[in-house]
Design a protein around this nucleic acid. Structure first.
Length: 592
DNA sequence: GCCGTTTTCGGCCCGACTGTTTTCAGTCG
């Protein structure tokens, strides 16, 4: 059973409690507990079943003894008696109906009962049809408005789950913000929510503006030239649709209260809940308007976020780590990490030029020379060319000839640029991205490794496979003395493919022992290692490399998103090898 | 049902919006 399926089951149980046992003592909190447990399982970086096998399930925050016992039964027998009893008599359709925005457990149950919709299959369609025929308005607690709302929202069920890749959302936000800044009434402007926290995928773009003239700001916003549709415009907020189907929401607040607004809508939800729970014990109630002492009326306002956090007795917390993973305690203790920044980056160790033609996967578009020029404009000290390994059908001698030719070209590049420029000399590493075959064997003849400064190893096939096998596969590959970087380690694609299932703890151990560096791949659909695993890796003392995996010069700009992932994983500059100068990196990558 | 640098018992974030309501329930972020 996948994490998603387990999460769905736990949410169904929460709904079951809501319908059947709402009046029981503590029921409210039990419902929340099941919802939290569902969230926790859904966001796990390893399969819940594997954690269970290792006996680590109850270490997950949000899963206590009771739910762990239920899951134990689930993994052993395939079902949970208690859950089955609880869900008995509830129409399966209600869980489908709950996917419609605005319909929760109560309404879903009521609708499926009263309209006689019981089967899960086609439930939403039947609901839409009932609404169309005017059957909703007569139900108790519902009216014409409810019916109208259902008609409008059933269409959103499909699109509800679509999230956008971070760079796409970021580019839209950057453009809107640049446009908004042209209006003199905009004093401050920031992205909010998951975009400000730089989460790998973003649901919609929220933007806040500090201004004492909200009407003018809203008017300017709704006149955004690339807008495809106006969704709503009120006195303090508005929403538009932009090409690609992304919602952009804008909120305006006076500048004297801007700090609390920014803090609240940046989230994450978990961070805010943890922060508020903690502060409540100190007699402070927090909201998007400011801070209130419990025993006194009146709200204290904050024009910026730094003051807001300081008032709570802690350091300002960078948005990227506001996920309730220990940042609040660290901020109180003044022990927050000094997160790595884009300006710390001194080189890109994963670039594909067009030099090799017959490679196992897509080759780059641009010449080495051209990519080096761009690296120079980015202020780098070094780059590594890591084309895919030559196709395996080629003869060994041909492969060797090709790689020797490439080595000569890199040598030439290094020497010719030294004579051309006196000040900045970009150093070029001669590398290769080598496939890790399902067996763990590297897809390059042993003798060919000798031509390389170092090798980057990566999985590009057979993503589905048993955890034990995948773990063994990676372990075998990173033991090769030339392999210094493990690229896009999980192989996930945010647009669809799950990463491989592997024992990362074991792999991290081996990386530490073999001095293998983990890549944070900045490619928009990868962002791999995922932030949570970066956090684990940093804690374990591993070194990482933030790389773009560029196949064309313009992609070299994507570095900022890899840096965001590193920041979300609490990485400091000292955790990232490509913040080091050339000499140090060289000795790390080229030592035997 | 979960959780603990003031608790293993006694708490559990905060507010907005919507609609159907004579004072509040349900849902959402």
């Amino acid at each position: 059973m996948s994490n998603l399926e387990i999460a769905r089951l736990l949410r169904a149980v929460a709904a079951g409690y809501q319908i059947k046992h709402e009046k029981a003592p503590n029921s409210r909190f039990r419902i929340i507990a099941y919802q939290r447990a569902a969230d926790a399982v859904e966001h796990l970086t390893s399969e819940a079943k594997n954690l269970w096998e290792e006996g680590n399930l109850d270490e997950v925050v949000g899963i206590g003894k009771t739910i762990a016992d239920h899951l134990d039964e689930l993994f052993k027998t395939g079902k949970v008696k208690h859950f089955e009893e609880l869900l008995d008599g509830l129409p399966p359709a209600m869980f489908e109906l709950m996917r419609v925005p605005g319909i929760g457990a109560k309404r879903a149950y009521k609708l499926s009962k009263e309209l006689g919709i019981t089967k899960a299959h086609g439930a939403v369609k039947k609901l839409a049809s009932a609404a169309k025929h005017g059957k909703i308005r007569n139900l108790e607690g519902m009216g014409e408005q409810s019916e109208l709302q259902i008609l409008q929202t059933v269409a959103q069920v499909k699109s509800k789950s679509t999230r956008f890749l971070l760079p796409f959302a970021q580019s839209i936000a950057d453009d809107v913000i640049a446009y908004m800044k042209r209006n003199p009434n905009v004093e401050k402007i920031d992205p909010l929510g998951s975009l400000r926290r730089q989460v790998a995928t973003v649901g919609d773009v929220d933007i806040s503006v500090a201004s004492d003239h909200p009407e003018e700001v809203i008017a300017h916003f709704v006149a955004y030239p690339k807008k495809t549709k106006l969704i709503e415009a009120g006195p303090h907020s508005a929403a538009i649709l932009v090409p690609g189907g992304l919602h952009v929401d804008l909120m305006v607040q006076p500048s004297k209260a801007y700090g609390a607004l920014l803090q609240h809508f940046t989230g994450s939800k978990d961070h805010n809940v943890a922060l508020r729970t903690l502060m409540l014990k100190k007699g402070l109630s927090l909201s998007e308007y400011g801070i209130q002492k419990i025993d006194k009326p009146g709200t204290e306002l904050f024009d910026d976020e730094v003051k807001f956090y300081r008032r709570l007795g802690m350091d300002w917390i960078p948005p990227e780590i506001r996920e309730d993973r220990g940042e609040i305690q660290a901020a109180i203790a003044h022990k927050l990490p000094h997160l790595v920044e884009l300006s710390d980056i001194k080189g890109d160790l994963h670039l594909h030029s067009n030099f090799l033609k017959e490679t196992s996967h897509d080759s780059g578009r641009d010449s080495m020379e051209k990519m080096v020029e761009i690296a120079e404009t980015l202020g780098y000290e070094y780059v590594a060319f890591t084309e895919h390994n030559p196709k395996r059908e080629e003869s060994e001698s041909k492969i060797l000839d090709e790689l020797k030719r490439k080595k000569e070209e890199v040598d030439h590049l290094n020497s010719s640029r030294e004579s051309l420029h006196e000040k900045r000399v970009i150093k070029v590493f001669n590398s290769l991205e080598v496939d890790i075959r399902p067996s763990g064997e590297l897809a390059l003849p042993e003798r060919a490794f000798e031509t390389l400064d170092f090798a980057v190893a990566a999985v590009h096939s057979s993503f589905r496979g048993l955890r034990a096998d995948q773990t063994k596969r990676i372990l075998a590959a990173i033991e090769h003395p030339k392999v210094k970087i493990l690229a896009h380690p999980t192989g996930r694609l945010l647009t669809g493919r799950e990463g491989i299932d592997a024992d990362w703890e074991k792999i991290f151990e081996s990386c530490l022992k073999n001095k293998v560096i983990l890549e944070i791949n900045s490619w928009p659909a990868r962002l791999d290692l995922p932030d949570q695993l970066v956090h684990d890796a940093v804690k374990a003392g591993l070194k990482l490399a933030v790389s773009t995996d560029s196949h064309a010069t313009e992609q070299m700009e994507l570095m900022r998103f890899g840096v965001s992932v590193a920041r979300r994983g609490w990485a400091e500059a000292s955790d990232i090898i490509n913040t080091l100068g050339y000499t140090e990196v060289r000795s790390l990558l080229m030592s035997p």
